[in-house]
């Protein structure tokens, strides 16, 4: 269970939100909504532990959400793709999963990329891929991750309809396996069999 209590976040002189509390249980999806600049990305970074909150605490399974044990349970996909332009799609995926401590074999990585409709482009350097294809290379990690908590910042940007559908199906599958998802998106979200909970930042 992910528990946030009385979070306050300040960027520079601006206070983005104060006293934000919520809990997220297994199988739940939390959608963070709000206009541009309202602190959605900042909230996700707080949850990951990339930035410390000004006030308040975040806990995971009863303990403070920090350290290597927490990070083992976390998959964060940020606004940026974390894709190296000079490496191929396959190399990018394999290195990303190596860092996450869940190494893949070439065959597993190729299968994940094929499911993301990247078959035939696995060995091209990422710089020749389109924006949407780069996003798919990043999102291929969702297909192979075993982490229970997913924190996704605008996962659906630049994706075509088919890819959006695939990601939504994968989210449903993850939630059905008692996973948890926190995400931001400006697109209408339809995850089969799940009613997303919403937090509105202003």
């Amino acid at each position: 269970m992910l528990e946030a209590a009385h979070l306050t976040c300040q960027r520079g002189e601006r206070t983005l939100f104060t006293g934000l509390s919520f809990t997220l249980s297994a199988g739940e999806l939390l959608q963070v909504a709000g206009p541009n600049g309202s602190g959605k990305t900042s909230l996700l970074k707080l949850l990951c532990g990339l930035t410390p909150p000004l006030e308040g605490t975040i806990s995971w399974q009863g303990a403070l959400a920090r350290g290597e044990d927490f990070r083992r349970n976390l998959l964060y996909i940020g606004h940026q793709n974390a894709v190296k332009e000079d490496l191929s799609a396959l190399e990018n995926l394999r290195i990303a999963t190596d860092f996450a401590g869940e190494p893949l074999s070439d065959a597993q990585a190729l299968a994940a990329l094929a499911r993301m409709d990247l078959a035939g482009r696995e060995h091209l350097p990422a710089k020749v891929l389109s924006q949407g294809q780069k996003r798919r290379v990043t999102l291929a990690r969702l297909l192979v991750s075993r982490a229970p908590l997913w924190v996704l910042d605008e996962p659906l940007t630049a994706l075509d309809v088919r890819a959006v559908e695939l990601i939504q199906l994968r989210l449903a599958e993850h939630l059905a396996q008692q996973g948890m998802v926190v995400l931001t998106t400006h697109q209408p979200l339809q995850v089969p069999g799940v009613t997303p909970r919403r937090i509105e930042l202003s």
């Binding site: 990339l50 990070r71 083992r72 793709n81």
Partner: peptide, 19 residues
Amino acid sequence: YQDGTLEQMLLAPQSLAAI
């Protein structure tokens, strides 16, 4: 830092000093 890979390194469940 620019392409977001550093965030992933910071969130890796291993020692950042080793990376």
